[in-house]
């Protein structure tokens, strides 16, 4: 390789792991957070449906 070109791009390969790590950590952490929020939301919605049913059943039992 032309030594001047090698000099121009001298920092590219050494910096690559840091750039890849920065983007990978950011994207992965964001993805994990989104999955956590969405699964938490679904779980809470399911619990809510069960509890609402239980409250309705209890109120129905009381009124009868």
């Amino acid at each position: 390789m032309n030594p001047i070109l090698a000099d121009i791009y001298a920092t590219v390969i050494p910096s690559a792991p840091f750039i890849i790590a920065a983007y990978a950590i950011l994207w992965l952490a964001l993805l994990v957070y989104v999955i956590k929020v969405v699964s938490g939301l679904k779980k809470t919605e399911a619990q809510m449906a069960v509890l609402e049913e239980a409250v309705r059943a209890k109120e129905g039992g009381v009124s009868r």
Binding site: L5, I8, Y9, F18, A22
Partner: peptide, 26 residues
Amino acid sequence: LDTPELVNGVMVTHQQLISQKIFYFH
């Protein structure tokens, strides 16, 4: 650079920094 170099029709006078790409998200 000690000696400027013509790359793809552009005169390059400095080392090209790729690490700065982190800035676009940072």
